[in-house]
């Protein structure tokens, strides 16, 4: 007993190296009780929502639940059915295409804008406000605004045709093959500003001496940016990247506002698939199987991150 108490104390000490005094006492204290009471919502949320709810979703994905939860287990039948459903296969293809293109383009344009903003230009703060304001708007607003602009009869297409360019075609949303690109335009419009702001912060965080050194060596500015500055601001790049990826979760809003998954099922996404199956389509079992599949890449990426960090820590300890 005494041994385990000292082990706990030792672990605490490594946990809170800055303040080893607090919480070291193993005996019961009123303030500890207060701390637990005060954080009850956190405990309930962490355990109740992010553990039990996820397990419950997992359990339901092995049942034949329709409208209400049932506990008639059917093994992997829902998963088999899921991967034979064209609606789901299209959803998976779409989220990859949408994710790669909108995150990729947002990163590229965000970086370009940040670099151009960093050229001692005039009216920088005005431009920054202009680039960033769409992020304050909801994706529903974004989607509805762009849907109106991409309207084939009354939107950009007809306006440009009215200027004399009769053959101008720009109405991606009405065509099943191009509708996804319409979504990407809306999504990028909403998110590039944030990427720009984070990248610009990264650029400003870099030591100004780098520029002098690069100039002395006669390296052109664009090469300095790509080969010297970009690797130096990888923290900002990573932050922007993760922010964009987490934002992919919200794709539901923009799909509903712009295409509602159409034309046909051309712009279905996993996020929409799950919600439709637990609401209108009344097939909770299949919906939960799809939800579990959504969790797979998240868990994979987080484990990868944890692994990389663990390796980094081990390497550091070896170096010491």
């Amino acid at each position: 007993m005494a041994q385990s108490a000292s082990a706990v104390a030792a672990r605490r000490e490594t946990n809170a190296t800055r303040r080893p005094e607090y919480g070291r006492r193993p005996r019961f204290r009123l303030s500890t009780l207060m701390s637990i009471i005060g954080t009850t919502p956190m405990i309930v949320t962490a355990i109740g929502v992010f553990v039990i709810c996820i397990i419950y979703s997992g359990v339901l994905s092995f049942t034949d639940s329709r409208m209400l939860p049932s506990y008639n287990f059917v093994g992997l039948a829902q998963y088999e059915r899921l991967w034979n459903t064209s609606r789901w296969l299209i959803s998976v293809n779409n989220i990859w295409l949408f994710g790669l293109l909108s995150v990729g383009l947002s990163m590229v344009f965000g970086f370009l804008l940040a670099v151009f903003m960093d050229q001692k230009i005039r009216h920088e703060s005005l431009l920054r406000s202009i680039f960033l304001y769409p992020f304050a708007m909801s994706l529903v607003v974004t989607g509805l605004a762009w849907r109106w602009m991409l309207d084939p009869g009354l939107g950009i297409q007809s306006a440009v045709q009215g200027w004399g360019f009769e053959n101008f075609r720009f109405a991606p949303l009405v065509n099943a093959n191009t509708a996804i690109y319409g979504l990407i335009v809306g999504s990028i419009w909403n998110s590039v500003g944030v990427t720009m702001a984070i990248m610009l912060a990264g650029l400003r965080g870099i030591d100004g001496e780098i520029w002098k050194a690069a100039r002395v060596d006669g390296i052109p500015a664009w090469r300095t940016y790509i080969f010297i500055v970009l690797p130096m601001m990888k923290g900002a790049v990573f932050t922007a990247f993760v922010l964009q990826c987490v934002g992919m979760v919200r794709v539901y809003d923009i799909v509903i506002a712009m295409t509602q998954g159409g034309p046909g099922i051309a712009t279905q996404m996993p996020a929409v698939f799950v919600i439709e199956h637990i609401t209108d389509r009344l097939n909770v079992g299949l919906g939960m199987a799809a939800a579990m599949m959504m969790l797979v890449p998240v868990v994979f990426l987080l484990s990868l991150l944890a692994f990389v960090q663990w390796r980094g820590r081990v390497a550091k300890e070896k170096a010491l």
Binding site: F50, P270, V274, V284, A291, M294
Partner: peptide, 10 residues
Amino acid sequence: FVPYQVVIYP
């Protein structure tokens, strides 16, 4: 990091 869709139904 958990997609909302995973926990909404529970």
